[in-house]
Design a protein around this nucleic acid. Structure first.
Lengths: 105, 105
DNA sequence: CTATTTGGTAAGTGTCAACTAACGGTAAGT
DNA sequence: ACTTACCGTTAGTTGACACTTACCAAATAG
């Protein structure tokens, strides 16, 4: 299982996506992420663990707090995968249109 | 739940990703997609239904066969979402570096 | 040193979803 | 009309996983 696979798997869960999107505005400690979400703090911790293992977030210690932030690398990998997929899909789509046009003659 | 949300949810399952990637090479009937995958044909049908509801694939009838192909629209929506996310994440990341640099003075 | 804040982890539970088997339905061939 | 090929749907089961509660560890405040 590649990292990109893990990333797509990670973004499946709505709560986990909410956690991830919360980090979009900037680095945040766990408690602050949990506040405003309809789940408990341990749940958020578990989600962050999954996101970290997928390469989507990183964390650093700051006193007793743990600051999480988005990891551009994981996000970039997803973008690269999507771009590559997009390209080959379009190519296949185009050649298919070509093929069906040939059938109509 | 938006369409992009559904798309991310849809690509969570490994088998479903395999089905989707199979269509990358071009349009395929259900039976041909199922052949080579470790699941039965009905399973593939169900996966295709989820992918269709997520706007990632479309289908057309051709005799008794049902030809599925990738829908560029759904793929494009995902790309747009990721691009937007990427941008704001980088912006937040940059301003955070700025902030922490200011702290060091 | 004690109390407080912050957060990761373990155990247990309930729900959801992926799968198979069985069935029905449609189109084409004979 | 009968058979064959291709596919969608339903019912039922099993495994994964998101969640909470409880507990433990580390850093700071007093």
């Amino acid at each position: 299982m590649t990292n990109v696979d893990r990333a797509f798997s990670a973004l499946h869960d709505p709560t986990r996506r909410a956690v991830f999107e919360r980090l979009r505005e900037g680095p945040r400690p766990v408690g602050e992420i949990a506040r405003g979400l309809p789940v408990t703090r341990p749940a958020v911790s578990q989600h962050l663990k999954v996101l970290r293992e997928a390469g989507l977030v990183s964390d650093r210690s700051e006193g007793t707090k743990r600051i999480y932030h988005i990891d551009p690398k994981g996000l970039g990998a997803m973008r690269a995968w999507l771009d590559q997929f997009w390209e080959s899909a379009l190519r296949a789509f185009a050649s298919e249109v070509e093929r069906s046009a040939k059938e109509d003659r």
